[in-house]
Design a protein around this nucleic acid. Structure first.
Length: 274
DNA sequence: AGGTGGACCCGAACGC
DNA sequence: TGCGTTCGGGTCCACC
């Protein structure tokens, strides 16, 4: 599932391809994508717009246009953006939208589970929309151990659940939460407000290192995720715990266990995560 | 208010 | 083999 590193990889890939291009034609084939807004209305709004920037906030991809209009894309679990230089030929399975650019290339959006969303906002609507949903950027310069400490200290639930709450940190999902907690040697079930300062420091570092490793590997491909050029990421080969139940912990050799925390499948080392 | 659990989806994995 | 059932996961929302 695309989390921060996957969305950042997509952003980096698409930015040079989209910058300065005009959306010449937009087709939206699934009304769920823009619900409750009529897809024809969204397609009409986007047609003719010229791309000024491709940004990311948390797991959202942000396409900013010269007019000030913004397209906010969330891939949820199975959304995929693909770029094709000479235009896509046959329609791939689960195609939900196609954007034809003014240089003959196109961007297609596919989504098996249809959870992903495209939302068009005015320039003044974007910040309030994101601010209501997202906390601090974990890879941003402003994210300190103190920030993390403040956010965890207010919450009694299991630390993993708090990390998954996008209002705590923007962009951490099930995979990178498990990986960061392993790096920090913290049991995912621990109440967030009981973590000690050294543990919070370790978690701060663990989060940044896990996310940075994900970006360096172009994300993790388990099933669906691909870069816009169709390439798989490599981070799945670096997982320390995620999906590795029964395999020895690379730090202490104890078999990795699987449990359920905050309603999510959770992998951890029962010996070195305390 | 914070925490929890269901809904939304549908392919894959599982169970008999 | 084949078919029905369960699972999973990001976010929103209803309900404690």
């Amino acid at each position: 599932m695309p989390e921060l590193p996957e969305v950042e990889t997509i952003r980096t890939n698409l930015e040079p391809k989209l910058l300065g291009r005009r959306f010449e034609d937009v087709e939206i084939l699934d009304s769920r994508l823009t619900r409750p807004v009529d897809p024809a209305e969204v397609a009409a709004e986007l047609t003719g717009e010229r791309v000024a920037a491709v940004d990311r906030r948390g797991k959202y991809l942000i396409v900013r246009f010269e007019s000030g209009l913004v397209l906010l894309i969330h891939l949820r679990m199975t959304g995929k953006l693909a770029y094709s230089k000479n235009g896509a030929s046959a329609a791939p399975p689960h195609l939900r939208a196609v954007v034809r650019l003014d240089d003959g290339s196109d961007v297609t959006y596919r989504d098996v589970r249809r959870f992903g969303t495209w939302l068009v906002l005015g320039s003044d609507e974007l910040e309030p929309y994101l601010a209501a949903r997202l906390g601090i950027e974990p890879l941003g310069p402003g994210f300190s151990g103190r920030d993390l400490s403040e956010r965890l200290g207010r919450r009694r639930g299991p630390v993993k659940g708090v990390l998954l709450d996008q209002r705590t940190l923007a962009g951490v999902g099930n995979i990178y939460a498990d990986e960061a907690l392993w790096r920090a040697r913290i049991d995912p079930r621990r109440p967030a407000d009981e973590l000690q300062p050294p543990e919070i420091g370790a978690l701060h570092r663990g989060l940044r290192r896990a996310l940075e490793a994900g970006i360096a590997r172009q994300g993790a491909t388990l099933r669906d995720y691909r870069t816009p050029d169709g390439e798989a990421g490599g981070m799945q080969h670096e997982f320390k715990v995620y999906g590795r139940g029964g395999e020895p912990c690379s730090r202490c050799g104890t078999p990795i266990e699987k449990t359920r925390v905050a309603g999510r499948g959770t992998w951890f080392c029962p010996a070195c995560q305390r």
